[in-house]
Amino acid sequence: MSTPSEFTQSAPPTALKWAAQVIDTYRIFGHDDTRVIALDGVTVGFEAGKFTAIMGPSGSGKTTLMQVAAGLDRPDQGQVIIGDVEISTLSEKRLTLLRREQVGFIFQQFNLLPTLTAKENITFPLDLSGSKPDPEWMQRVIDTVGLSDRLGHRPSELSGGQQQRVAVARALVERPDIIFADEPTGNLDSRSSAEILGFMAQAVAEFGQTVVMVTHDPGAATYADRVVFLADGQIVDDIVNPTRDQVLSHMGTLQG
């Protein structure tokens, strides 16, 4: 096991250095015999303007970490800070609004509303809050993901890769403080996967977007600026600018 990096040990937030932080957080499911400790005192920060990957074997708690950090789930103990807001005291409604305005999501599947067209799906979060997308920014995002000619189509008329591109565009168009992606390439072939990962890396590099991605694909993790490894609900490793071999060897250590 390597020693935790400076990111996980770092001190409280300075403005905008951290897009989201999880501090000494526990998340426990079930009772007694069925009790599972998904997060066992995790402390981690996600740096603004960076692409962070969370990796770990099945059941390591990586999805739970993402959900807690994104405000989709509440920890049993510990602090979660999105931007500069500590969310544990927020009402469900305030939390929903915060997610709507500051957090973007890309899921593995069920990303899109089947009754809406691609364009409507992209603007869906903005429509929910009744705001209008910035047309210039919108165009730029659509051009980036290469969807200009599919905007009027419904999800059922798009390929899996195209559907995920719509999801990426939706996450980008609202310019959230942070985008969480849960296995965004889990259902895609390798070519589409590379495209989607490329768009996300491009968004980080060109637009300064913050992206946190949960993945079990070492190839996908190499697109990230940093990889956080999780096992049994704890952060066990943290590497910056990972290569494929580094990731593979770390994963090998965890699973072996």
Binding site: A70, L97, R100, E101, V103, F105, F107, F124, P125
Partner: peptide, 8 residues
């Protein structure tokens, strides 16, 4: 999903 995306 829509709840995650911010539907109150």
């Amino acid at each position: 999903m829509v709840r995650a995306l911010g539907m109150t």
